[in-house]
Design a binder for these strands. Structure first.
Lengths: 337, 337
DNA sequence: CCCTATAGGTCAGATCATGTCCTATTCCTA
DNA sequence: TAGGAATAGGACATGATCTGACCTATAGGG
């Protein structure tokens, strides 16, 4: 286990540097006796106590166990202290966040992309390799409708939104036409499993929404702008209206042969809760913007009997999947072994 | 957007505090002109330059854009700088890591748990609420075989391993008998989707492996120990042997009607690659420790025709799932609407 | 009861950090 | 092509700060 900023420079007479180093040491989940800290930091025991005091004044709650076998330890406080991660931990977080970027939880997703952007901004390049390699090894849950979002695209966009920099990218619209866009990015929004960028399109001189999976080669130009006011309240609201106008959603209607609680625990929360029909079944009517393939798998994952009422496409795909599995489950013609 | 340590204490004459604050400001993915930094930090422009110099000496690569519209910005260096996260980002990372704890990527998983433990050690309590609430809203991919691992259990264990503290917990063994264990935890290992603790059992005076999903009420006692030497090389190796002895795995054998590349991209990498049969099909023989239900879903997600050869249980479950989906896809008897 | 931890006070001397000057350099824009 | 605005950095005097070496008080474990 290597704590980069803890062990790299053992001889530093610089106070602020020592404080950072101390913070990094204390973040290891264990007890640190004052003597050991003094050794590691190359200062006297008294100074360590003073440093700990300073950390406390700064708001980091350092807990001390008195008596023999005592020591210091960083505990939960009222604000987040700076996280000191070693290489592997940083990679793990990056991979985790990138994997989650596809099918995120409502309310966390854009914060998660922001965190990812922050992390990747400072991620050493040798770790970048490992992240992309490992990410390639991850199998996303997506049912292969091809509309996967590159995490790089998301982070570039998030940086541009945060930094108020103009964003240029290539866009492939719904009917397949390609175009290049120069925009003032306003906000990233995710609905269910899909990401959208709400931005002011400078060429068209109007607000637009872009599906992130149709964006390629995003580039923050570096030019700053002062944000315009979005005509319709929030970005999420604007997106909702825009999607509604374009009919990019469909309604579905399914009955499950299981109690509401059972179903609710096995479906993404953003679909909303089903309404109970009776004690042993419930019915879900909702709107989805995702492909029917994905929805069908989601339904299969619920792991109970169900019936599809709407839409016909979903019905068709469920039937097809059922037949495929039935074929797969037939006693196999023995292959050559 | 609130940067806790950036805005909480505007008047501080303390240099180390100011450096941390500066680090936090620079972590926003944007350009910061020196004047603005000077204002925010309440010091002169010259001092800001000096601080930036100090950060650079500490190893944080601060990039400066010269000329009009220039500014400072933190870029990737050779080591990870401490991450300064705001509340939402911290929550997002925690939720992401907890969600990923179930079905992690090989090679990242235990680092991911370590990172989670580090983060939760210092996560303010008000954020803890949000994390658990949001996590409840997440639907794990697990096919409901009940063997889900509580992230809290994992983090407590990871802390105990890192801090070399004795660990006490209740264990429900395979045949259902309950027992209390006092152990010296050695390493956490994950295989595929399941977590194991390799530890020295003090009562039995021997090494044991424990399935984490069968552990409850884990408690780090606080008592330290000096790690013993594991008789068999690495923890992963020990676990493999232990599982082999107990026959906790099964072999499966499936043929896909799709090229190797197609299948490989849609299956977890730790299953290993299938071997090509011909240009349009390939066959996968591997060992799984997971439930057949989970494996069946994984196969369905591959989204191509396939045939199950072994084992019979898998064959049965695939057939059952297929029939259920076929029933679900039948033209529904119209319910009362 | 003793040992070993943290906790904190005081003091002198060395060190460090700050703001205000100054000039050099680079880049964008007009 | 000239000008403006930004970073970069040297010099210096003043004042604050930091450190180590003393010291005592207090709490827990064996």
């Amino acid at each position: 286990m290597s704590y980069s900023y803890g062990t790299l420079r053992p001889m530093t007479t610089d106070t602020p540097a020592r404080l950072l180093q101390l913070l990094s040491l204390l973040q290891t989940p264990r007890e640190w006796p004052g003597g050991e800290l003094a050794d590691r930091l190359g200062v006297s025991r008294r100074t360590v106590r003073r440093d700990i005091d300073r950390l406390r004044e700064l708001g980091y709650p350092v807990q001390a166990t008195k008596g023999a076998d005592g020591g210091y330890r960083l505990v939960a406080g009222k604000a987040m202290p700076p996280l000191v991660l070693d290489d592997e931990e940083a990679v793990a977080i990056a991979v985790g966040l990138r994997a989650g970027a596809g099918h995120a939880v409502e309310g966390v997703d854009e914060a998660s992309v922001r965190a990812l952007a922050k992390l990747e901004q400072v991620l050493p390049s040798r770790l970048r390799h490992r992240v992309s390699t490992l990410q390639a090894a991850t199998t996303p849950l997506t049912s292969g409708d091809g509309a996967t979002v590159a995490p790089e695209t998301l982070t570039v966009m998030a940086s541009a939104v945060a930094g108020q920099e103009r964003l240029r990218f290539a866009y492939r619209s719904g009917d397949g036409t390609e175009s290049r866009r120069l925009t003032e990015p306003y906000r990233l929004v995710s609905t269910g499993r899909r990401w959208y960028l709400v931005a002011y399109d400078l060429d068209r001189a109007d607000w637009r929404t872009f599906r992130v999976d149709r964006v390629s080669d995003p580039l923050a130009t570096g030019a700053r702008f002062s944000p315009r006011e979005l005509p319709t309240g929030s970005a999420a609201e604007y997106l909702r209206q825009s999607m509604y106008r374009r009919q990019e959603t469909y309604e579905f209607d399914v009955t499950f042969a299981a109690p509401v609680e059972f179903v609710v625990a096995r479906l993404p929360a953003w679909l909303g809760p089903p309404e109970p029909v009776d004690e042993h079944s419930c019915r879900l009517r909702a709107t989805a913007g995702d492909s029917v393939e994905w929805l069908a798998l989601r339904l299969a994952l619920v792991d109970c009997e169900f019936t599809v009422h709407e839409p016909p496409e979903l019905l068709g795909y469920v039937r097809e999947l059922g037949e495929r599995l039935t074929r797969a489950g037939k006693a196999p013609d023995r292959l050559t072994d």
